[in-house]
């Protein structure tokens, strides 16, 4: 087992950050924790990396208990926090060397594991970490988290604020690491990244909404979604939101995703209603749900 979490709860004074969380990550799995800021993702990461103690529940990482065996966990996991946490005054190479030494290893010994990533920052190896661009910092942090060849890798929002191109490159890197046998738990607020994981947990307000493969999660969506388009998107959203049979209305790229509360919904009725609201060029067609649709339906 890569990670096992059983009935974990954690409160900060009056705030319940995590409420009875349970899930398991298999060895070698790429598991995604998908949820917005404040969902409790970072608290969970800190508990699993033995930096924080839960109020209730138990958890193991690489078969070590987070309380009684915390020293072994620290030796066998890599953790890349959401906030850049390397030494800004040390150079790229010094940071890497520092982390290798702390874990009793050398850069040479595990160079294979980081090679693909390190070659991209190697031209800047004498630059101080604080002077690197965001994308470079992220790559260096990943190298430092990998330098002791961890069994389990924790990545807390590695792609937040990162542009789509760099995000795609980062996920390609994760896939390659997974092929080398590393179990990966990664969190992200970007719903489109969920599809790149083996399994995901949707999390909001400290509670897990659902756990499954990305494919199964969208299959469980309870309604037929329609793509709706008209000449004025803002007026369209307002009209749909005030339609008496509206179940949900969310803008989605160039369309609005609409679901109807009736079982025998006829799109022609909606066209007539929208026309009565002075909208024109109305298009309505069936579409498939995405992870984001599912998340919003569950979070409603």
């Amino acid at each position: 087992m890569g990670i096992s979490v059983s009935h974990i709860s954690k409160s900060y004074k009056a705030v319940k950050a995590l409420k009875d969380i349970s899930f398991e990550v298999k060895a070698g799995e790429l598991f995604g924790l998908i949820g917005p800021d404040g969902a409790g993702k970072t608290t969970l990461f800190r508990i699993l990396t033995t930096l924080l103690i839960a109020n209730e529940g138990t958890a193991t990482v690489a078969n070590f208990d987070v309380i009684s065996d915390y020293k072994n966990i620290r030796k066998s996991v890599g953790y890349m926090p959401g906030k850049f946490s390397l030494y800004q005054d040390l150079t790229v190479e010094e940071n890497l060397d520092f982390f290798a030494t702390i874990f009793g290893t050398t850069i040479e010994e595990n160079y294979d594991l980081i090679k693909d990533i390190y070659v991209q920052i190697a031209p800047f190896k004498d630059r101080r970490a604080g002077k690197l661009s965001g994308g470079m910092k992220q790559k260096l942090a990943l190298c430092c988290a990998l330098i002791h060849k961890p069994k389990v890798l924790f990545l807390d929002e590695p792609t937040t604020g990162v542009d789509p191109v760099s995000r795609k490159e980062f996920w390609d890197m994760l896939k390659r690491l997974q092929q080398k046998g590393i179990t990966i738990l990664v969190s992200t607020p970007y719903m489109d990244e969920a599809a790149l994981c083996d399994r995901i947990a949707l999390i909001q307000d400290g509670k897990i909404l659902e756990i499954d493969t990305p494919q199964a999660i969208v299959k469980h969506y309870p309604k037929q979604i329609y793509n709706v388009r008209a000449n004025n998107t803002y007026q369209l959203i307002k009209a749909l939101n005030t339609y008496k049979h509206n179940h949900s209305t969310y803008p989605f790229g160039e369309f609005v995703h609409y679901t109807d509360s009736r079982l025998n919904f006829n799109p022609d009725d909606l066209v007539r209603y929208l026309e009565s609201k002075k909208l024109s060029n109305i298009e309505i067609e069936k579409t498939n749900p995405t992870i984001e649709d599912t998340f919003m339906e569950l979070a409603k």
Binding site: D37, T160, P189, Y250, E292
Partner: peptide
Amino acid sequence: DEPTGGVDPITRRQFWEMIYKAAS
């Protein structure tokens, strides 16, 4: 400048409705 980074998907959409309203 990146007004919706990290915001949950429902709030993100409410935010865009505010943008549409301001523009209209």
